[in-house]
Every structure is written in C-alpha cells, then in structure tokens.
C-alpha cells in the first residue's frame, strides 16, 4: 500500500485537472452535439498566456488576466468558427473544430518558436509539503478540493438559475427551446465561457506540476479529458468528473506499475509498462463504448428515422 499511495494521490490530482477540462467538453457536447477538438488547445494556450504574462506582470494581476483572456478566446472561437455552421451537418462543425485546433497549435508553434516555455513558479501552491509521510507539492493536495468546489458551484448554477434552466432546456431539445424563446446564442456563449474558464483554472493547476508548455501540450490532456467525459456519459457533469478521476488515477498507477510490481515481487525488472499510461485511457474508452455506449451516467437517446 505504501508504494501505491503516492501514485493514487498524484492520480487524484491529475484527475481533478482532467475533470476541469472534461466539463468543458461535456457541456459543449450536451448542447451542440459537438466534440470541441480545440478545447485541449485552448487549455494549452491558457498555459502559454500565463508564461508570457507572468514574465512582465505580478502574479496577482497575471492569473485573473489569464483566465479572462482564455475565456475571451473560447468565446471568440465559438462566435467565429462554430456559429456560422449552426445549420451545417455535424461533421462540418467537427472539422471546423479540428481546423481551429490545427490553427491554435501552429500559432503557438510560431509564437514560441517550438521551444519549451518554462511555466512560472506560483508561490504557495507550488511549495513542497509532506502529507501522510510523503513529499508532494501543495497544488496536488489542493486540486481535488478546488475541483469539487467548482463543480458544486457549477451544478448549483445549472440547477438553480435562469441561465442554467435555459442550458438544460437547450441540451434537451435545441429546436423546441428556441421556439420557447430561449436565446440560443447567449446560452451557447455562456457554455463556452464556463467551459474555458474551468479549462483556464485547470491549466494553471496542471502546468504548475510540469516543467513547461509546448504547442502540443494540450493535445493529450484534451483527449483524455474528452475520454473522461465519454466514460462518465457525455452531457453529464458528475459523470465527467468521476470519469476524469478514474482516468487520472489509472494513468498515474500505470506510470508507476513497474515499480509497484517490483516491490510486490510480481516481476523482477522494469518491463516498460509506463508506455501504456496514455494508451490505457483509450482502452477504457473502448471498453465503455462497447459495453455501455452512453457511458456511466449517460441518457439513452433513441434513433429517429
């Protein structure tokens, strides 16, 4: 147990970061039926904005500004790249999302010159502390609590405010809610604003634990968060959060599986199982898609002829 515990704790932390990204995917999918492939790259851009802003501004100005600019980016992407395609087939919108992702990555490549940009140290949260007899950073401990706090706030927003009611209506039936006088465009914009806000917070927590940001930093966390959303049942916020925690923990354990197995005496030498830490996420995805395509908490939708 003593060997597994550190991996579980770091897994919970990574899971919390994935959860914050996954909510953006699941909310957008719930309303637009769109896999927002650019979401992972927005997360990466948030990391880069932080790198550049923190170089010249004090952190207490930089952090709110990062969140603000990221939200603005998410809002702009929706208005420019998805709104004109509202009546187009779903495949076109998905392709547009892939196009935005390509653009953001290339833009980041151009601006950074492809170099690794060191993420700024944020005092207090990147301090090393010791918990349950092991060394870790404070952000690892804070992340799950912050995630749960934000999710509770979000669920309250969705269940108890007017805009939340509109969101639920739109995700239930796009056309009918339009007929009932719901301002579709406002609802969609708010969805993107919330999604990117959480991704920006997630990016600050995520990159603090990593040495730096490169243009492709967002791709893998983005995909994993999406898998988490599918795993939990796309469209369901608690589902996405639980899915993200499961994936984060599984990934972290697999990263250390060699060491764990050696300590337990199951194997005698490193067998390189860590290579599969990313792939295992997709194995989980395929298992859930085959046995329960709607995910853990997804609703069943009937096919209309």
């Amino acid at each position: 147990m003593q060997t597994v515990l550190p991996y579980i704790i770091s897994g919970i932390s990574v899971g919390g970061q994935y959860a914050l990204i996954a909510i953006g995917y699941t909310m957008v999918y719930g309303i637009l039926r769109l896999i927002n492939f650019a979401h992972g790259d927005v997360f990466m851009v948030a990391g880069l904005i932080m790198v550049y802003l923190a170089a010249s501004l004090p952190l207490y100005v930089a952090i709110p500004l990062v969140i603000l600019l990221t939200v603005l980016l998410g809002f702009t992407i929706e208005r420019v790249a998805y709104k004109p395609l509202r009546t187009a087939p779903r495949m076109s919108v998905m392709i547009s999302a892939i196009g935005v992702s390509y653009l953001l990555q290339n833009l980041a490549l151009y601006i950074t010159g492809g170099l690794n940009k060191n993420y700024p140290q944020i005092p207090w949260i990147s301090d090393r502390i010791s918990i349950l007899g092991m060394e870790t950073t404070r952000v690892t401990v804070i992340t799950p609590f912050l995630t749960i706090l934000l999710v509770v706030l979000l669920v309250l927003l969705i269940n108890h405010t007017k805009i939340g009611m509109a969101m639920r209506a739109v995700s239930l039936d796009f056309e009918v809610s339009q007929l009932m006088g719901v301002q579709i465009n406002t609802v969609i914009s708010v969805t993107f604003v919330i999604g990117t806000f959480l991704a920006a917070v997630g990016s600050i927590l995520f990159f603090t634990n990593y040495p730096g940001v490169v243009p492709t930093s967002g791709a893998m966390p983005g995909l994993k968060a999406f898998v988490a959303a599918v795993f939990g049942g796309i469209g369901s916020i608690p589902g996405a959060v639980i899915g993200a925690f499961i994936i984060g923990i599984a990934e972290s354990i697999i990263k250390g599986l060699d060491t764990i197995l050696i300590v337990n005496g199951a194997i005698t030498e490193q067998i390189g199982l860590a290579t599969f830490s990313d792939a295992f996420t997709f194995v989980l995805l395929i298992i859930i898609l085959v046995f329960k395509p709607t995910g853990l908490f997804g609703e069943k939708t009937a096919d209309k002829v």
């Binding site: 999918y29 039926r33 896999i35 779903r90 495949m91 998905m94 995909l223 999406f226 898998v227 599918v230 290579t275 599969f276 990313d278 792939a279 996420t281 997709f282 194995v283 995805l285 395929i286 898609l289 085959v290 395509p293």
Partner: peptide
C-alpha cells in the same frame, strides 16, 4: 467492436485505437 458505434463515438474510438497502436 467499433463499427457498431455512431458518428462521434466512432471517431473517438478509432482515434483511441490509433493511439493504442502507437503506444504498443
């Protein structure tokens, strides 16, 4: 297994398989 899935789910499942192949 995956061809039973519909549009987006198929896209993401095949994407996942490509990543698994790469890892293997």
């Amino acid at each position: 297994p995956v061809l039973r899935l519909k549009s987006d789910y198929l896209a993401i499942a095949t994407l996942g398989f490509a990543e698994i192949i790469r890892a293997v």
